[in-house]
Simulated assay, not measured.
Amino acid sequence: MTVEDKRSVSMRIFGDLLRTLREGRGITLDAVAAHTGYSKSQTVKIECGERIASTAFIERAEQLLGSPGVLRAVAPHLSREKLPVGYGEYADEEARALSLGAYDSHVVNGLLQTEACMRAVFGARCPALEEDEVERWTEDRLARQSLIVRRPVCMLSFVLEEWVLRRPTGGRAVMGAQLSHLVEVGRRRNVQIQVMPARYEAHAGLDGPFTLLENPDRQLLAYAEGQVGGLLTDDRKRVSLLHQRYGMIRAQALTPEDSAKLIEQIAGEL
């Protein structure tokens, strides 16, 4: 596969725009790298359309280039090629969601993962991902996390299985930092994190993980991802069923307060 094959049209357009703005103002790649906190090689990949720019990179680059809003206007159209089938459409809807609710039974939700945890998850993929793919997927996931602090605010709800928190993904140090991050994020007024206790014999989420979204048009959507890709649906019957199921899952899980205490307890046991 050539480098050209790995680049989407939107990523190339973004990179060309970034380079044009930079060169037009006589700013070097080294200066952009230093100001954004990226390495020069990472910055080159963004300009070449081989890497998706994070929200933090875009904001800092605009500040340096004196072009507020220009890169941000293009960023929502960045394609997420080479990521799971069906994911791109979901990611676009996620970025503009008014509310989001997710039940996860295998790993910590991507919106809540630390960078080290992300790399551990992507590093465990089989067949193994190329290094540039791990970088691209990690950057995309980090960029998505801007939803947590976005204005206008997005209301976020997560239910995680207890055993997800007890698996030392990436090692004990990585998981310890991940658990601390969950407690910290859970203190935000727009975020609720709940844990489904492992002691329960059964509960309403045994059919597997899924995510619910409400978009600015007040349309309700549902997304489920499996081994061979994901499916985003607005089918009223399916979405209604999952909303009922998620309501029951939240009712059966620990309260956010008790969940935070359990997360802290698990961290102390590492």
Rank of each mutant, 00 (worst) to 15 (best):
Q192L: 05
T211F: 07
M118S: 11
E115I: 00
T211S: 07
V85A: 15
P197D: 03
Y223P: 13
V70E: 15
A224Q: 11
A224I: 06
V32K: 09
D132M: 14
V239S: 05
R199T: 14
L100G: 03
L29H: 12
A91V: 09
D30R: 15
V3N: 05
V164N: 06
L160F: 11
G176K: 09
Q194H: 05
M11E: 14
F210W: 11
R96H: 04
V108L: 02
L212Y: 08
Y200Q: 12
K261Y: 01
S105T: 13
D140I: 14
Q244T: 10
S54L: 05
I249Y: 15
V195G: 00
D30N: 14
N109C: 03
D5M: 15
A33Q: 10
G88W: 05
Y223I: 10
P152R: 05
Q145N: 14
A253I: 10
K40H: 15
E89H: 05
D5H: 15
A53V: 10
C117G: 00
D207Q: 14
A224S: 11
G176E: 06
R189E: 14
Q178S: 01
D217P: 03
G88H: 10
E23M: 06
S54G: 12
L262K: 04
A267Q: 11
E269N: 11
W163Q: 09
N190M: 00
L65Q: 03
D16G: 12
T20Q: 06
R218K: 09
L78Y: 11
F210C: 00
V239F: 09
A260K: 01
V134G: 08
G268Y: 11
G49E: 13
G226L: 11
G229F: 13
C126P: 05
T43P: 09
A61K: 01
D235H: 13
L17D: 04
I263H: 00
L160C: 01
E89R: 09
L262N: 04
G88I: 00
L242Q: 09
R187I: 02
F57G: 02
K40T: 15
S105F: 08
I148K: 00
R60Q: 12
G37T: 07
P84D: 03
L29F: 13
H35R: 12
I193R: 02
R96T: 11
R125Q: 14
L111A: 10
Q194Y: 04
P216C: 07
C117M: 04
R238A: 14
G86E: 07
I13E: 10
V149H: 01
D234Q: 05
A128V: 05
K45S: 13
A75E: 12
P209V: 05
E162R: 06
S259W: 07
M118T: 10
G86L: 03
A202Y: 14
T43Q: 05
A31H: 12
Q194K: 03
I27A: 00
T138H: 11
